[in-house]
Nucleic acid binder design. Structure first.
Ligand SMILES: [Zn+2]
Ligand SMILES: [Zn+2]
Ligand SMILES: [Zn+2]
Ligand SMILES: [Zn+2]
Lengths: 150, 150
DNA sequence: ATGATATTGAAAATTATTTTATAAATGGTG
DNA sequence: CACCATTTATAAAATAATTTTCAATATCAT
């Protein structure tokens, strides 16, 4: 919705390092599965049981603004977060939502191909692969052999 | 959320052609700007003032399931719909949300590059360019010359 | 026309996320 | 250390897009 913020840049904030923010960052750095805000909330709660979900959202936003983590906005209803801030692509399981890194190098040149061919000023691109994780592949091939209602 | 539906295929529906569905399809086919459900609702309301937003959503879903239109799930909070069902990429304005077609051919071979390198079964990919439409580019360069608060 | 089933409209529910309002914590300064 | 201007946390309410529910029609192949 409010994608304006980063562009019409408001006044600079001086961020403080709070225990909450510190724990959130530590937990995200431990998680290799591209967790959602809710999954991070659950992990952080084990360290700080009184933390609120709103705090987790706010800090994830700040941390990605600061470049400490990366916010992944995939074609999914939930956003995910990545400790790895380097540009890389992902593959998402269409059935369970699992997200893995896609072992393919970023292709900056894709944007060049568009240059001059569009009236837009190109700022970037987003590439996401869609697929089935091994577990879901298995479940579905079973289902195919034994259909739900004959 | 429920991306399961198309996969664990439920029982076949026999769809009827209702006046509502017909008008919705006609209106989408007239719109070249990748409209959202709400924008389609507003257009359809001029023909059928008593239609409900829920009906529009339901029919857009059915029509894309049937391949009559294409549902675009971009990295945005709102989904958009496209009368053009051919595979093609889009470029989205990060500021106002305008979506244009991206004049670049679909690259099926991207998926081949991943084949064997991931444990996922690859089903497809999604590529979206991010940028600024001419109007927003202009507004922002003005803003840069006259910052909001001195 | 009849009946089985699909569809509608209106409202309520859901989901992910953001905002709001207080109270509490932080960090620089005298 | 004490003061103060912020920033931040918490809990709850608000938002926004979409989906679900359900009783009342509408549709279409007999
Ligand atoms: Zn899966
Ligand atoms: Zn990653
Ligand atoms: Zn724009
Ligand atoms: Zn298009």
């Amino acid at each position: 919705m409010d994608e304006h913020r980063d562009i019409t840049l408001a006044k600079k904030h001086i961020y403080r390092m709070t225990p909450q923010r510190k724990v959130i960052l530590e937990e995200v750095r431990k998680m290799n599965n591209h967790p959602s805000a809710d999954e991070i909330y659950e992990a952080v709660r084990k360290k700080l049981p009184r933390i609120s979900l709103g705090t987790v959202y706010r800090n994830l936003e700040i941390l990605s603004e600061q470049g400490e983590i990366q916010k992944l906005e995939l074609t999914d209803s939930v956003n995910r977060y990545d400790w790895d801030t380097r540009k890389h692509y992902h593959i998402r399981c269409v059935r369970c939502g699992r997200v893995d890194n896609a072992p393919i190098a970023p292709m900056q040149q894709l944007e060049n191909e568009l240059y001059g061919a569009t009236v837009f000023t190109i700022l970037g691109h987003r590439l996401e692969f869609i697929g089935l994780c091994p577990e879901c592949s298995k479940k579905l091939s079973c289902l195919k052999n034994n259909p739900p209602d004959k």
